[in-house]
C-alpha cells in the first residue's frame, strides 16, 4: 500500500489523543495516584483535543474531493469509516465540555465532570476500535485482515497517551511514579502485541496468482500487465519493502517506540526529570509513526496478483 502521510497521521495522532483522554478519565475516576490536579487535567485534555484535531484535519488532506466529506457521516450502518467519523465527532462536545467544566469549577473530580470525562474517554476508545476495524475488515489485504489490528491500535494509542500523561504530570510538578509505570507497562504490551502481529503476518496464506486467474494446476506467470506506465492500481497498491529493509525499519521502530521510552521513563522516575519524560514522549510517538508507516508499506493488496506477484 502507498503509505500516505495523511492517513498515517490520522491514526497516529488521533490514537494518541483518544488514548490520553481515556487515561485522564480513568486516572481521575479512580483517583489513581491522587488523581490529576485542575491544571494537569486542563493541559491533558487540551493536548488530547489538539492531537485528535491534528489527526482529523490531516485525514481530510487524503480526500481527493473534500467537498463531499460531510457525507462520510451518513453510512454508519455499514461502513467502519463512517462510524469512525461519527464517533470521533461525538467525542468533541464531551471533551470540550469537560475542559470548560474544569476551567470554571477547578473540580476535575466532581461527579458531573467525571461523567463528561468518562463519556469522552469512552467515545475515544470506541473511535480507536472503529479505526482498527477500517483496516481489519478488508479481506483483500491479509496483513490487515486480523483482529490483531484493532488490538495493536489500542495498545499504541494507550501507550502514547500514558506517556503524554506522565510527561504532563512531571512537567507540572507532580510525582508520576504510577503513571510512568503504567506507560512502561503499556509500552511493553505494545512490544509484545506487535511481535505477535509480525509473527502472524509472516506466515504465507491467502489468495495466490493461481486462484486469482483460476489456473490452479500449472505454473502461472505474468507476461505483460497491459500498460506501459503505472496506473492508479500500481501507484496505490504496488509498494513493497525488501526483507532486509523491513527488518531494519522494525528495529528502528522497536528502538524508538520501546527501548528509548522505557529507558528514559525509568530515568524520569528516578530523577523526577520532566526532560527525560519529554524525550520518552517524542520517541514513542515517532516510533509508532514508523510502525504505522510499516503497517501500510507491508500491506500487500491482492490486486498485485494481476501485476505479477505470485502471492501476497
Amino acid at each position: 500500500m502507498h503509505p500516505a502521510l495523511a492517513v498515517i497521521f490520522l491514526t497516529l495522532f488521533s490514537g494518541g489523543g483518544f488514548g490520553l483522554m481515556a487515561l485522564v478519565a480513568t486516572v481521575n475516576d479512580l483517583q489513581i495516584d491522587g488523581g490529576l490536579n485542575p491544571l494537569q487535567t486542563l493541559v491533558a485534555v487540551l493536548l488530547s483535543l489538539l492531537l485528535v484535531t491534528i489527526g482529523m484535519l490531516s485525514s481530510t488532506a487524503h480526500l481527493a474531493n473534500p467537498r463531499n466529506a460531510w457525507r462520510a457521516f451518513t453510512r454508519w450502518r455499514t461502513s467502519w469509516l463512517a462510524r469512525e467519523g461519527v464517533v470521533a465527532v461525538l467525542f468533541y462536545p464531551f471533551a470540550i465540555a469537560y475542559l470548560v467544566w474544569v476551567h470554571f469549577t477547578d473540580a476535575p473530580t466532581a461527579p458531573a465532570g467525571l461523567a463528561l470525562a468518562s463519556l469522552a474517554g469512552g467515545l475515544g476508545l470506541v473511535t480507536i476500535f472503529c479505526q482498527g476495524m477500517i483496516y481489519a475488515t478488508l479481506r483483500t489485504i491479509r496483513q490487515w485482515n486480523t483482529a490483531l489490528v484493532p488490538v495493536n491500535f489500542y495498545a499504541m494509542g494507550l501507550a502514547s497517551g500514558a506517556t503524554f500523561l506522565a510527561l504532563i504530570r512531571m512537567a507540572l510538578g507532580g510525582k508520576a511514579t504510577f503513571l510512568a509505570g503504567l506507560a512502561m507497562a503499556l509500552i511493553i504490551a505494545v512490544a509484545v502485541l506487535k511481535g505477535i502481529y509480525y509473527f502472524w503476518i509472516g506466515r504465507p496464506s491467502g489468495p495466490t496468482i493461481h486462484t486469482a486467474t483460476g489456473f490452479n494446476r500449472s505454473r502461472v506467470r505474468l507476461l505483460d500487465q497491459g500498460h506501459t506506465f503505472g496506473t492508479f492500481l500500481t501507484q496505490e497498491f504496488g509498494h513493497r519493502l525488501p526483507r532486509e529493509q523491513a527488518l531494519g525499519m522494525k528495529t528502528v521502530m522497536y528502538v524508538l517506540a520501546v527501548v528509548i521510552p522505557l529507558a528514559t521513563l525509568a530515568v524520569a522516575v528516578e530523577d523526577t526529570s520532566a526532560l527525560a519524560a519529554l524525550v520518552a514522549a517524542v520517541s514513542v510517538i515517532s516510533g509508532i509513526g514508523v510502525e504505522r508507516w510499516l503497517f501500510f508499506v507491508e500491506a500487500q493488496h491482492v490486486v498485485n496478483l494481476y501485476h505479477g506477484r505470485q502471492r501476497c
Binding site: 500500500m1 487524503h62 480526500l63 481527493a64 474531493n65 473534500p66 467537498r67 463531499n68 466529506a69 457525507r71 462520510a72 461502513s79 469509516l81 477500517i134 478488508l138 479481506r139 483483500t140 489485504i141 489468495p207 496506473t231 492508479f232 492500481l233 496505490e236 497498491f237 493488496h301 491482492v302 490486486v303 494481476y306
Partner: peptide, 27 residues
C-alpha cells in the same frame, strides 16, 4: 459521482482492481 469524496476506501476493498480514482474530478 456527485456524492463521492475520493477517499479510495472502496478501491482498497476491491480485490479485482475494478476501481480507479480520477485525480482530476477527485472521484
Amino acid at each position: 459521482q456527485s456524492k463521492c469524496m475520493g477517499c479510495n476506501y472502496c478501491s482498497w476493498a476491491c480485490p479485482y482492481g475494478a476501481r480507479e480514482l480520477d485525480r482530476v474530478s477527485g472521484t
